[in-house]
């Protein structure tokens, strides 16, 4: 996990998340916000699913497994 920085959310949003943590399957407000933002950023192409090193390693494994050559 990369280093963290603090940001501010409105009281209204935090309360809404806190009130529904169990329903949202999250252990904390931070965990939920991080997961939702990561998913959104990946979907819009602003955040990579893999680092370059991870993608090289996954590609190597997929070759090893025979899916790629």
């Amino acid at each position: 996990m990369s280093k963290a920085r603090e940001i501010r959310l409105s009281e209204e949003v935090v309360r809404a998340i806190e009130a529904h943590l169990v329903e949202l399957s999250a252990g904390s407000v931070e965990e939920y916000v991080e997961a939702v933002l990561r998913e959104r950023l990946r979907r819009e192409g602003h955040l990579a699913s893999y680092s370059p090193e991870e993608e090289r390693e996954i590609t190597r494994r997929l070759r090893d497994l025979g899916y790629l050559d």
Binding site: E23, L24, S25, A26, Y32, A35, V36, R38, E39, R42, S49, Y50, E54, E57, I58
Partner: peptide
Amino acid sequence: YPPKPVKGILVSCFLAPSTEV
């Protein structure tokens, strides 16, 4: 992988680089 938020819980697949991520 990477895991998306779901209503429930998710353990992703063999395309995860490791258990460190």
